[in-house]
Design a protein around this nucleic acid. Structure first.
Lengths: 207, 207
DNA sequence: TGTTGTGAATCTCTTCACAGCT
DNA sequence: AGCTGTGAAGAGATTCACAACA
């Protein structure tokens, strides 16, 4: 497999394609054309073909792509074969909603532990996930082999939380707090900024 | 003011700059340089200056930008002067977390009503927001002058929900359901796809 | 015919680099 | 000296357009 760099956008779309294809396969579809994937994903046929080029999966003219094979190819490309274990820090309203959202959804990418500074929220099972004191993160991360973190703490503790995660050996962070985290370049971070997105929609809704 | 088209990315960054500047102003800062905004927002000085060009706000060499004025200029540009009223459909775990997240935060952009099909969730006040039956959306939207919608329903009802919002005259949609909505081109939609983002972090965390 | 795979063209966004200002 | 504002260059992403194929 080529080591050519694959863009964040392409990775995002591949993740989306896989999820949509999974729905199609459940509906009994066996073959799919790039223009169908494009329609489902709000993309274009050329874009879809380019993205599939990146993972080296080939379809056949006149038959398109085999749905099952394509789902598997995307999975082989995106997923860690060992599975990826995730810890969530900040068991507030948003943190609990996210635990519920991901609960039991994808075995290869599961939230296996949650953390909070509030003793009332620790040593419980919330949406199927055990909760610990935030200060226990390094120990639990090692025991549970956690390598990705989700930050759903308040804004003013997000940076300190991120540094703790990095020191505990975490390699990727999904950040919901409305600040920009400063982390070493080898740690990948993505932000989900709901305020920014809501304001963007508000702006474009009028014009 | 020029009608030149301003990109989605620039609008998103302006929203971010404003929020970060607001924190700086609370901390007593009066003037700010593009390189400081860049550091806070994870951007570059040139990028910041370009974005501020778009809204026609000028700083002064040697003094940079005045924090208060800049916040106001971004607000004049982004916000609807009347304020923007938002309705949320789908009062599950995620919907409630979002109600809590935005509750009382920004007067110019407030969630004023929430909707669900489950009678157990309607006719209540949740995180300061009144809940209604989803079927009442068109009526309430008119009464409350709602023009933006947030979809936090399950995936299989998201498209039908979107169509109902569009028929009720909504102009912008923020979608959390893991599907791509098909709406007329005059309706702006943004997706927050948590699964996709989590998978993206997982991918880039290992390499 | 209608599809895939892909080089080339196009479009969009970001960064450079520097004149002009204080 | 060190900043802003901006034309121009560069980088990156998307779309076009067509050969090859079933």
């Amino acid at each position: 497999m080529a080591l050519k760099h694959i863009s964040e956008k392409t990775i995002g779309r591949l993740s989306l394609y896989r999820r949509l294809l999974y729905r199609s396969s459940l509906a009994g579809q066996n073959n799919v054309y790039s223009h169908q994937i494009a329609a489902l994903s709000g993309s274009t046929p050329a874009q879809v073909r380019r993205d599939l080029m990146a993972i080296g999966y080939s379809g056949s003219p006149n038959r398109g792509y085999k749905v099952g094979e394509l789902i598997k190819s995307i999975g082989d490309f995106l997923d860690d074969p060992e599975g990826m274990r995730v810890g969530l820090v900040g068991v507030g309203n948003l943190g609990r909603a996210i635990l519920s959202y991901f609960s039991g959804r994808r075995p290869k990418l599961a939230i296996v532990a949650a953390f909070d500074v509030d003793p009332n929220k620790t040593n419980r099972i919330i949406h199927g996930c055990r909760t610990y004191a935030t200060s226990d993160f390094p120990k639990v991360a090692k025991e549970e082999n956690i390598c990705e973190g989700i930050i759903t703490t308040p804004a003013d503790t997000a940076q300190a939380t991120a540094e703790m995660l990095v020191n505990a050996g975490i390699r990727g962070i999904l950040n919901f707090a409305p600040v920009c985290l400063k982390v070493p370049p080898e740690v990948f971070t993505a932000d989900i900024d709901m305020t920014m997105t809501l304001e963007k929609v508000a702006y474009f809704a009028r014009k």
